[in-house]
Design a protein around this nucleic acid. Structure first.
Length: 431
RNA sequence: UCCCCAGUAGCUCAGUUGGCAGAGCAGAUGGCUGUUAACCAUCGGGUCCGCGGUUCGAGUCCGUGCUGGGGAGCCA
């Protein structure tokens, strides 16, 4: 007897198969009974009829509660009345386990309750769709870099120093006499990698101890961070655009069913084709001014300002050359205009905010030393980083793409917490 | 850290002017020969978030704490 996955039953019409899965639902009408089964690849209706199904299975039916784990054996039939087009005419049912009363009913639930049951919530069709899109986003991004000759170079998660202030760092004890921090970014290490391999990227979790309670923030989130030697801002802007295009194409190609299930307006994603919009910080300020939300030059955008700018466009918008004073110490200043940094942010459409941040790195030892001092960082922590400029410094650039915000945007989610299997938020470490 | 909202059955919620604690779903029992979140009937199920106060009487009003949600600040 073949054990068949639900998404493959179409190839077994008329044959007897066994499907192993979980009970999502059951219904009955007189002597005919229905089990809805889920196995991770899809759902299918199994039909029990007196006379065709054995007595053991008919008796078992009445004991089964939602999420009981089952092996269902029967004949695959095409039937218009069955959701999905195929059903199993059951000959026998065995239970691996009869579930206790399942807390998540097929009705509505509040966010807090679902988050407390995240380990079970993952079984619902909506989460199935979202996390499939996440899988594809990560895979598409990695394939994009692999195909262009990048080397995957994983960055450490435990680090000895902060690259920004210590206020947003998670601190942990390191063998009693020292402190270690959870990485906020793999970037500095990718710079070292770029000097060794030319083109590198990392993909992994990063941590921010920001006390942010918004729909765009997690304390643990994943980034894909490429870094390229002999590259300037323009090169990296082209790379950022091409990466997003590659991700969108792959999601549209392989995740139609998931997007449909999420009731995502696919036409808005189909618009995401090159070229994207490219504006300077100064031009973004003008857009805000025209919208009646003037901001003095030198200030960073808040969430509402980002939304105003991104709503101005139907595709992602690349914003370059922010004031140097609001950007990190390692950003290279524009030689033609020293008050701005050669940096790049990409805002997703529909108010999903910044999905990419990056730019060209400072490659001059003396200037970088100065900037480290200005940022009041410990010079000795960055000795190795300065070495990269002492031994064959080259122009180089890179960026980080936030996985969760990208997934939230493509899926049309209201909050990034659904775009990662087990979200970590300011007040939530369970489950 | 600040602002706003909420906390009543396992879940989602209603509860009028302060006067006997309610519905739908889930669960149990029974009915129905093709159901689509089936339907119909019956039944069980309560620390009304905690503490304090006002009152003859508090789910309801006041104070306070806790928890959750939304937002702000913050966010290379």
């Amino acid at each position: 007897m073949a054990i068949v996955k639900i998404d493959a039953v179409g190839g077994y019409e008329g044959q007897s198969v066994t499907i192993c899965g979980w009970l999502t639902h059951k219904r009955s009408s007189g002597r005919i009974r229905f089990l809805m089964l889920r196995d991770g690849t899809g759902t299918i209706q199994a039909t029990l009829i007196k006379g065709e199904t054995n007595e053991h299975a008919l008796d078992l039916y009445s004991e089964l509660l939602q999420e009981s784990s089952l092996a269902v054996t029967g004949t695959v039939r095409r039937d218009k009345r069955a959701p999905g087009g195929y059903e199993i005419l059951v000959s026998d049912v065995e239970a691996f386990q009869v579930a206790d009363t399942y807390p998540i009913a097929p009705k509505e639930h509040g966010v807090g309750f679902l988050m407390d049951h995240r380990h079970l919530w993952l079984r619902s069709s909506r989460q199935w769709a979202i996390l499939h899109v996440r899988h594809t986003v990560i895979n598409a991004a990695r394939r994009f870099f692999d195909d262009q000759g990048f080397t995957l170079l994983d960055a450490p998660i435990l680090t000895g120093a902060s690259c920004e202030g210590t206020t947003t760092l998670f601190e942990t004890d390191y063998f009693g006499d020292r402190k270690a921090y959870l990485s906020q970014s793999g970037q500095l290490y990718m710079e070292a990698g770029a000097m060794a391999f030319g083109k590198v990227y990392c993909c992994g979790p990063t941590f921010r101890a920001e006390k942010s309670k918004t729909r765009r923030h997690l304390t643990e989130f994943w980034m894909i961070e490429p870094e390229v030697a002999f590259a300037d801002l323009e090169t990296i802007m082209k790379l950022a655009e091409a990466l997003i295009v590659a991700i969108v194409e792959e999601v549209l190609k392989t995740r139609q069913q998931e997007l449909h299930l999420l009731e995502r307006d696919i036409t808005r994603i189909e618009k995401i084709r090159p070229p994207f919009y490219v504006i300077s910080y100064d031009e973004a300020l003008q857009i805000l001014k025209d919208a009646g939300e003037s901001l003095p030059w030198g200030e960073d955008f808040g969430g509402s300002q980002e939304t105003i700018v991104s709503n101005h466009f139907d595709k992602p918008v690349l914003i370059h050359r922010y004031p140097a004073q609001i950007k990190a110490f390692y950003m290279k200043n524009d030689p033609d205009r020293s008050e701005v940094a050669l940096c790049l942010d990409v805002l997703a459409p529909e108010g999903y905010g910044e999905i990419i941040g990056g730019g060209q790195r400072e490659d001059d030892t003396a200037i970088l030393k100065e900037k480290i001092e200005e940022a009041e960082l410990l010079a000795e922590d960055f000795k190795w980083y300065l070495d990269l400029r002492r031994y064959g410094s080259v122009p180089h650039a890179g960026f980080g793409l936030g996985i969760e915000r990208t997934v939230a945007w493509l899926c049309g989610l209201e909050h990034v917490r659904e775009s990662i299997p087990f979200p970590r938020l300011m007040d939530r470490l369970y489950p």
